[in-house]
């Protein structure tokens, strides 16, 4: 899927530039593309490194676990098909907590464990259970408290207040997650009938 985007972008970009008679800029752009990629990386690097450092402290001190414990009771309501002591719930909570704190790389292993754990109690192994679908709706919504990469980029382009989008992102995430849950809930109810 990503490789389709990559291919389409290049082919359309080149063909359309030629058709509209802008060939002379093409050469420049092809050569510039790589150096701009490096610039982008280097503008993100400092904040990313700093942040993963801070978050490692949160992880090793048990703050992450504490946070996961805090969200778990709310999760029981969202996953009516799971029992309270289901180990999958713990993994789901850890995944959500890590995602929320911007620890994407720590979140994925928890997410995969949650899926494996849900799969154990799945009667039809090639079909998604209700809980799986709800979990992925929650996960794709990507609830992040502090979007570090975006802040880093804004900073490198000289924003007066790079972090001003923290609250707008949070509110937008909240809206989209809520919409996702609502639709998931409605579709689930309808299927049962």
């Amino acid at each position: 899927m990503v490789s389709v985007i990559f291919g389409i972008f290049i082919v359309i970009g080149v063909v359309f530039s030629i058709c509209t008679g802008r060939v002379e800029v093409l050469n420049n752009q092809i050569l510039q593309g790589a150096s701009e990629g490096i610039q982008l990386l280097f503008s993100m690097l400092p904040v990313l490194v700093l942040w993963t450092g801070v978050m490692k402290i949160a992880e090793e001190s048990g703050m992450l676990k504490q946070f996961a414990k805090f969200v778990q009771p709310f999760l029981c309501k969202l996953f009516p098909s799971l029992k309270k002591e289901d180990p999958a719930l713990t993994f789901i909570a850890s995944n959500i907590a890590a995602n929320a704190l911007g620890l994407g790389s720590a979140a994925t292993p928890f997410g995969l464990k949650a899926m494996a754990s849900l799969q154990e109690n799945n009667p039809k192994k090639d079909e998604a259970t209700e809980a799986m679908v709800t979990f992925l709706v929650l996960n794709t919504a990507g609830v992040t408290i502090i979007p570090t990469t975006v802040i880093a980029l804004r900073m490198s382009y000289g924003s007066a207040n790079p972090a001003e989008i923290v609250l707008t992102s949070l509110l937008a995430t909240f809206c989209s997650s809520f919409a996702g849950f609502l639709l998931d809930y409605i579709l689930r109810k309808r299927k049962r009938r």
Binding site: I12, G13, I30, G33, E36, G37
Partner: peptide, 17 residues
């Protein structure tokens, strides 16, 4: 991945397609 995507999106966006 970043270099590849910056390269591709630059070509695409600047073509005015």
């Amino acid at each position: 991945a970043v270099i590849a995507m910056v390269f591709a999106t630059n070509l695409f966006l600047n073509s005015n397609f």
